[in-house]
Design a protein around this nucleic acid. Sequence first.
DNA 1: ACGAGTACCTGGCAGC
DNA 2: TGCTGCCAGGTACTCG
Length: 262
Amino acid sequence: MPELPEVEVTRRAIAPKVLGKVIRRVENRDPERYPGIEAARGARVLDVLRRGKFLLFHLSDGSWLVFHLGMSGGFRFQETPHTRVVLELEDGALYFHDPRRFGRVWRVADPKEVPLLSRIGPEPTDPAFDAAYLYRKAKKSRRPIKAILMDQEVVAGLGNIYADEALFRAGVRPTRPGNRITKKEAERIVQAVREVLEAALKAGGSTLKDQSYRRPDEKIGYFQLSHAVYGREGKPCPVCGAPIRRTRIQGRSAHYCPSCQR
DNA sequence: ACGAGTACCTGGCAGC
DNA sequence: TGCTGCCAGGTACTCG
């Protein structure tokens, strides 16, 4: 579920609740999946950061508690049927909720110990993520441009929804091989990625039919109302009216307008 | 080395 | 209503 906007909305929602607070107790309900996180007990939370789709709690003992929400994970202010970890704070608790159990939690001395986090690419807002950079990355690959955008080592934070939406805004078909992207298109894609993520963040992220993404207070996001292509197969393109098509890239659905995206 | 396919989990929903 | 099969926001691993 959660891509960069949803993770950032989550970070902003939980930060006031945990910043400066001592973790009184860690209740780990899936110790096989999240080994050793109980050791965060007794530490104070100095900072809550986001990097791509990862959430990082910097703790007063110098260690880090790192969360990845996977497909269906999130934080809640209340217990749920799928609570996997409870962080008891001085004045309340935070619940890590994850129905599909694709989420992960690590306690590490250094974030670089988290496998993907050590290799992750620039944030979309980082000036390092520019047209020249994307063009260079795309040029050397025959993978579809959508697969390149979803590669967290290329750029951090894009998933299936926002890759589709960004490529629609950029007017580039998701199936286009990376090595057939022009410099001009790379420029448009970079711009579109930034715009779509910012708009999604402002809308509180996307909450789909299955409601798997919710804010910690259970409120939903509204960006799904602005989706131009994602989840809209057969419906009219908001720009030209042509029916949106769905295809498969790397085993996942990809949506595009056959007329606006070439 | 690259890229495609599959595995990991669980729940919701469409279709029969 | 109830069952079955399909689909899902992500990432890691294997295989050709």
